[in-house]
């Protein structure tokens, strides 16, 4: 009897394929058609940058949103991948760069960054909760100071310039339109990867570890192992973002992962929202727009254009103070209110 498997409808929670709703189609078409009406500057500097920052922040979202671990190492992992690309590939610093082919240095860059992220994770998960912030921040700082002092491998203060993407298909990928599509493709892929992961056995277990580590251990899961593997997964996404970032700037320096940059990734992810993988991209877009237009906006309201950081800090404080789930949280609240208003039982009030 027991061998007769019950014929069951797919369980909604784990197995339902996302039906693709209409707004997503519209957004997708809009993004694909963007080069038709947006300027090169907007494509390269705002959207390209947003996709990259979004991916790095997405790797934080994976750890914080699904794993309950707020890691500040993601920007460092990204920068390390960028460094490896510069060191193993070609750059303006010919005495260090090895000039290997791209099919070797790109996988290696991702691999090395993933190993580094995993090791940091292995150290960080030995402690709990908010300790993670301290430890990852301290390691990020150590990386920054180390790259600044080390001239043999990381070329110290100056870092590497002239780090450009290979000319696949004879295209110059640093031109605005190709770069836009390249970063868009990577961002969409990593977004889908995270969405997919969240419904796999590993993703479900990771969320279980976040909610109730003690029970997870009592069900036979190694809590530590799941957390560490989450770092590996997140590091791969951060590494891809890091390589793109280095290509965009055509350079990598210790300042690529300086303390302010490390903190900015956290700000982006929190402002966008850590509950769903789209949040980091929203946060990144806001951040990119703000930082590009900050001086204009500040001048318009009669302040010096240098006060960008003040605006970012105050905005971040406002989000943390009033909508801890970020912009996504605001959106959800708005949706919920609309639902409530439509619900006849709750009356048509408010």
């Amino acid at each position: 009897m027991a061998d007769v498997l019950p014929t069951v409808a797919p369980r909604k929670s784990l197995l339902a394929l996302e039906r693709i709703p209409a707004p997503v189609w519209v957004l997708g078409l809009l993004l694909l058609a963007m080069p038709a009406f947006a300027s090169n500057f907007v494509l390269f500097q705002i959207f390209g940058w947003s996709f990259i920052l979004g991916m790095i922040a997405l790797s934080l979202m994976v750890l914080a949103g699904y794993g309950g671990m707020v890691s500040l190492i993601q920007m460092t992992v990204a920068a390390l991948a960028g460094y490896v690309v510069a060191i193993l590939g070609t750059s303006g610093v010919t005495q260090i760069s090895l000039g290997w082919p791209w099919w070797l240095y790109i996988p290696l860059a991702i691999l090395i960054a993933a190993v580094f992220g995993t090791l940091v994770g292995a150290l960080a998960v030995r402690t709990e909760g908010i300790y993670t912030i301290m430890i990852t921040l301290a390691i990020a700082a150590a990386f920054f100071y180390f790259t600044r002092q080390n001239y043999g491998i990381f070329n110290g203060y100056t870092g590497f310039n002239n780090v450009i993407p290979p000319a696949w298909f004879g295209v110059d990928w640093r031109q605005a339109v190709p770069f836009y599509y390249m970063t868009l493709a990577c961002a969409v892929l990593s977004y889908l990867a995270v969405l997919w992961m969240s419904r796999t056995p590993f993703g479900l277990a990771l969320q279980g570890v976040r909610d109730n580590p003690r029970r997870m251990a009592a069900l036979g899961f190694s809590v530590t192992a799941h957390r560490i593997v989450a770092y590996t997964f997140a590091s791969v996404i951060a590494a891809v973002g890091g390589i793109l970032l280095v290509w965009q700037n055509a350079q990598v320096t210790p300042g690529t992962a300086g303390i302010p940059q490390v903190i900015d990734i956290l700000v982006i992810a929190v402002v966008g929202g850590l509950k769903r993988p789209i949040g980091p991209f929203i946060g990144a877009l806001i951040y990119a727009i703000l930082s590009v237009f900050a001086s204009d906006i500040l001048h318009a309201i009669g302040m010096s254009g240098e006060r960008f950081k003040l605006v970012v800090g105050l905005g971040f404080l406002a989000v943390v103070g009033f909508s801890p789930d970020g912009v996504l949280g605001l959106w959800d609240k708005y949706q919920a209110r609309r639902e409530a208003n439509r619900d006849p039982l709750l009356g048509g009030g408010r």
Partner: peptide
């Protein structure tokens, strides 16, 4: 399969 990245199927 605790670390599986394949989605479970009803079967």
């Amino acid at each position: 399969g605790r670390f599986s990245l394949l989605r479970p199927r009803p079967s």
